[in-house]
């Protein structure tokens, strides 16, 4: 199986990537053949039959049944081969093996979250064991997104009104890019994540520890970690520049003016409410686009985030 990457394709890292690449290169070389045929034919004819002086009468040949049947039938056979080949792999991509580990994927503007059968939740980082089929049960909380991992040659739209299902089996440990491929608004190109493929043992350990518990971290550092891993950073900066949402720098202890008019003191309760029920009070000048983290964040994590925000003084 190809793991080095080629001129066109990035290194293939799933059980099906090799199959996709073989068909890709079959079509590629076939295309090169026809392209060279047509371009060479053009160049030769243009040179050979270039006009010298006045154009006189030319040959009236306008049919050749053998030729015409040939250039209809040969391409037809070739595309039928490609059709069957492509369909076979496509079916394999769509039929999930029985023993697959099921992970729930949620897409929303503009991050991914993953729920594991053991109860863990991660954001923008999908951790999976190598050489195990993984089934993804996907849905969106807002618009359509698309789950795209180039290294696995996999892509599936994530819809707001129904589940879509796909699966993969990684063949090498490492970190692979995950991108959103269906346009979903302002943060579309920031809707990135990683698929982290680890050994069986590491995976078990990671689940054991319970990702995102902040074991051995003080609340501020744990909050800083969550700020990254729970994708707050896609909308909030920590250096004072406003983004999709207000910057966290220096908010604590000040007053926030509200879209509806009036203002409110930014204290612990307000911060907590902003995270769990963002639509309750909308800060003036911003759109009501922040997703709720109800059910995504545990109490301890919310506390840590608040501690982190409090630490970002002007």
């Amino acid at each position: 199986m190809d793991t080095t990457g080629t001129l066109f394709m990035p290194p293939g890292q799933s059980t099906l990537s090799g199959e996709v690449d073989s068909l890709f290169y079959f079509i590629f070389y076939m295309s090169v053949f026809f392209f060279v045929l047509i371009v060479a034919g053009t160049i030769i004819f243009v040179y050979r039959y270039r006009r010298r002086g006045k154009a006189g009468l030319t040959s009236g040949v306008s049919h050749n049944t053998t030729l015409e049947v040939t250039w209809t039938v040969i391409p037809l056979i070739l595309v039928l081969i490609i059709f069957v080949w492509g369909f076979k792999t496509y079916m394999r991509m769509n039929v999930v093996p029985k023993d697959a580990i099921e992970i729930k994927v949620t897409g929303q503007k503009w991050f991914w979250s993953f729920d594991y059968p053991e109860g863990a939740t991660t954001v923008n980082e999908l951790v999976v064991p190598v050489d195990k089929p993984i089934k993804l049960l996907m849905s969106s909380k807002d618009v359509i997104h698309s789950f795209f991992v180039p290294a696995f040659r996999m892509k599936m739209d994530v819809l707001p009104n129904r589940y879509t299902i796909t699966w993969f089996e990684a063949i090498g440990a490492g970190n692979y890019d995950l991108l959103c491929a269906e346009y979903c608004g302002k943060g579309h190109s920031e809707m990135l994540g990683k698929v982290k493929v680890v050994s069986d043992r590491e995976y078990a350990e990671w689940l054991e520890k319970g990702p995102g518990t902040g074991e051995g971290l003080n609340p501020v550092d744990f909050g800083a970690q969550l700020y990254k891993s729970k994708a707050c950073f896609t909308c909030h900066s920590v250096d004072g520049t406003p983004n999709i949402g207000p910057s966290f720098k220096g908010v604590y202890g000040h007053k926030a003016s509200l879209e509806k008019g009036g203002e409110t003191a930014v204290d612990e309760n307000y911060l907590r409410e902003s995270i769990l029920d963002p639509q309750a009070k909308i800060v003036a000048g911003y759109q009501p686009v922040m997703p709720t983290y109800q059910g995504v964040l545990k109490d301890k994590q919310i506390d840590a985030l608040i501690a982190y925000i409090k630490s970002l003084k002007e």
Binding site: L16, E19, V20, L23, F24, I27, F28, M30, S31, V79, I82, F83, W85, G86, F87, K88, T89, Y90, M93, P150, R153, M154, K155
Partner: peptide
């Protein structure tokens, strides 16, 4: 266009 018509390659 042939690449894109082939189901498995189009997924990528």
């Amino acid at each position: 266009g042939i690449f894109l018509g082939a189901l498995s390659v189009d997924v990528h």
